[in-house]
Design a protein around this nucleic acid. Structure first.
Length: 581
RNA sequence: GGUCCCGUAGCUCAGCUGGAUAGAGUGUUCGCCUCCGAAGCGAAAGGCCACAGGUUCGAAUCCUGUCGGGACCGCCA
């Protein structure tokens, strides 16, 4: 139930009635008419711009339309007051019964209260993490993982049919490097002296793999050329790394629906098929690219290559898909992978990349635009860097120095809930500070704590009610005498709760799950404020001694807050706290 | 040189398909626990929304340009 949508319907109905009685000309487009919460609460509960948007097409003065509309709207029982303001805004004040009705809906619908069906019938693919299978996930991956997962949940909450997907980059040279590195650990496990040169991964996490290989194949590979062992070592190593990555993700509470292997595209004709699809659209040609302007590499020389005419679909230059040695560039399997997604029938694609991949956005969009003939939108969300802080000092990560902070390190130290919430306290394209101490701090400064605390407070007061023998299950509370909720501070919380369905839709439409986190912080703030007023005004406390009916009405409000917080945290993948310990 | 992202209060950041006097937290100043719900609450101060043009009833938001910060930039993945 979206109250803003309901009131907008009312506005549109009134406008239509004005048309049929001749106050407004026919043939107007109401598409731009909106009903929104005003910035300033002093302006009322909602405001509509109807009069201003329609003034010009209707050939009337905004304030005249507003006045007529106001008179008509005033007749609706949901409208307590309506006034024309500013250049032609209509400020609406809703009857307390409306807010009380919101509380009843929340208790009746539970966490389905904010659900939307905007995505009904829409198959959406969200690809995220997609880290190379060459090592454990680190902090940077964590942000992309949490962001992608929350976005996927958000879309699912809005009725989309969501597939969570991970693209395994197991087709390129880096997995050969992995295999060689593991081979060295294998030799080491058999007591040989080995040296890790440049171009191998020296990480300790490969030591157990070397041992396992030694147990498995014994001395068979010692002194043998790569042709003997490389393929099998690669298979074994990437498999083990993906197991590691899967368990890292599980520690964060993330489970993918699909792991898609890049390797599965090779030797199966699937890359060729994707390129053929581009060729059929006249987008593949042989040609020579201009050197990059400004910064010309020293060893630049013009070469004829097989190119994708991505400029036809918004890219800045055409992109090579085949190397001069005849092999595919990395871009070719990426094209084939996205072609595969299109062929699987998704209505929309979302890729979550690290900000360092910003350079690939245009070409990837070009490929999808070409292969989907413009019908399948691809949104690419970039997650900015995570800056680590420890003890108030910036913490530099370095693989060489061994100060490499993994996803596992973070989750082990602060837990999955705090990790996830904190990763969403910034917009995806803004850099994020992650301070280990800060994230665990119990203060208002820490949104993780502050939101959890609000939920725990509701749970606490419900437990108190039970101790006092007051029935406080959802069904009972839904039938409480909600008219007793009439204080301004209480109605302010109800008003905030009413915004939830609208916020969910905006967050889903813009692909911005951080909005949920910010909303929860604000809602928690409103709730804490009300709670604290109970200090000075005992009449605002949730439990009213000797007055079960009023207690139940107030408990209904508290419970509604916890339902929405719980729904919101659920989208973010965070468990609501039952108590603060 | 090009592309993308960012520039909002001292600091860290929100800001709704363009809406009214631009908001939070923190910090600063002031008030609130002998008792009942203070890991908190209330109030005040704090702004050329980087700059300059443009679009229109109306711009922090959209367009163009300039300045500043970051990321990326031909066969590597």
């Amino acid at each position: 139930m979206n109250l803003f949508a309901e009131i907008r319907d009312l506005v549109v109905d009134c406008l239509a009635a004005m048309q049929s009685e001749g106050t407004l000309p026919g043939g107007l487009d109401f598409g731009n008419v909106s009903v929104e919460p005003p910035r300033d609460a002093g302006h009322g509960d909602m405001a509509t711009n109807a009069a201003m948007v329609l003034a010009r097409p209707a050939g009337l003065k905004p304030r005249d339309i507003a006045q007529a509309l106001a008179e008509r709207m005033a007749g609706d029982p949901r409208i307590a007051a309506v006034e024309v303001a500013g250049p032609g805004f209509l400020n609406l004040r809703l009857a307390p019964t409306v807010w009380q009705g919101v509380l009843a809906s929340i208790l009746a619908e539970g966490e389905a209260f904010g659900r939307s069906d905007m995505g009904r019938g829409q198959k959406v693919n969200v690809e995220y993490v997609s880290a190379n299978p060459t090592g454990p996930l680190h902090v940077g991956h964590t942000r992309g993982a949490v962001f992608g997962d929350a976005l996927a949940s958000l879309l699912a909450y809005c009725g989309h049919d969501v597939t969570r997907e991970y693209y395994i980059n197991d087709g390129g040279a880096q997995v050969d490097v992995l295999a060689r590195s593991v081979y060295l650990r294998y030799l080491e496990a058999l007591g040989r002296e080995v040296a890790f040169e440049d171009g191998t991964y020296p990480g300790d996490y490969l030591i157990p793999l070397g041992k396992q290989l030694a147990d498995k194949v014994g001395n068979a590979w010692v002194g043998q050329p790569e042709a003997v062992w490389l393929a099998e070592a690669r298979e074994f190593s990437t498999g083990a790394m993906m197991d590691l990555i899967r368990s890292d993700l599980a520690a964060l509470g993330i489970r993918m629906d699909v792991f898609f292997s890049e390797r599965s595209l090779y030797g199966t004709g699937r890359i060729e098929a994707a390129i053929d699809a581009l060729r059929a659209r006249g987008l593949i040609y042989r040609g020579v690219l201009e050197p990059p302007k400004g910064k010309v590499p020293e060893d630049w020389e013009p070469r004829e290559q097989t190119l994708f005419k991505s400029t036809e679909h918004g890219d800045d230059v055409d992109r090579p898909i085949m190397k001069s040695d005849g092999g595919w560039t990395y871009f070719a399997p990426d094209i084939a992978y996205h072609y595969d997604k299109i062929c699987r029938g998704f209505d929309a694609l979302i890729d979550v990349f690290g900000a360092d991949h910003g350079g690939y956005v245009k070409r990837m969009k070009a490929a999808v635009s070409a292969l989907g003939d413009g019908r399948v939108p691809l949104d690419i969300k970039l997650t900015q860097l995570v800056k680590l802080w420890k003890d108030g000092e910036p913490f530099k990560m370095s693989k060489r120095a061994g100060t490499f902070v993994t996803l596992r390190d973070v989750v082990d130290q602060v837990g999955p809930d705090a990790t996830r919430f904190h990763m969403l306290t910034r917009k995806n394209d803004a850099p994020l500070d992650f301070d280990f101490a800060r994230v665990l701090e119990q203060s208002r400064e820490n949104p993780v704590f502050y939101v959890q605390y609000a939920h725990a407070r509701v749970m606490s007061v419900l437990r108190k009610a039970a101790e006092a023998g007051i029935a406080a299950d959802d069904a009972t509370l839904a039938g409480a005498e909600l008219a007793r909720i009439d204080d301004g501070a209480e109605l302010a919380v109800a008003r905030k709760l009413a915004e939830w369905p609208r916020l969910v839709e905006i967050a889903a439409r813009t692909h911005e799950p951080h909005r949920v986190a910010f909303y929860l912080y604000e809602l928690a703030g409103d709730f804490h404020a009300l709670w604290n007023r109970g200090n000075d005004q005992p009449g605002l406390r949730f439990l009213q001694e000797g007055d079960i009916a009023t207690s139940q009405a107030k408990l209904a409000l508290a419970r509604a807050v916890s339902v929405v917080i719980s729904a919101g945290l659920g989208i973010l993948g965070v468990t609501p706290a039952q108590e603060m310990r």
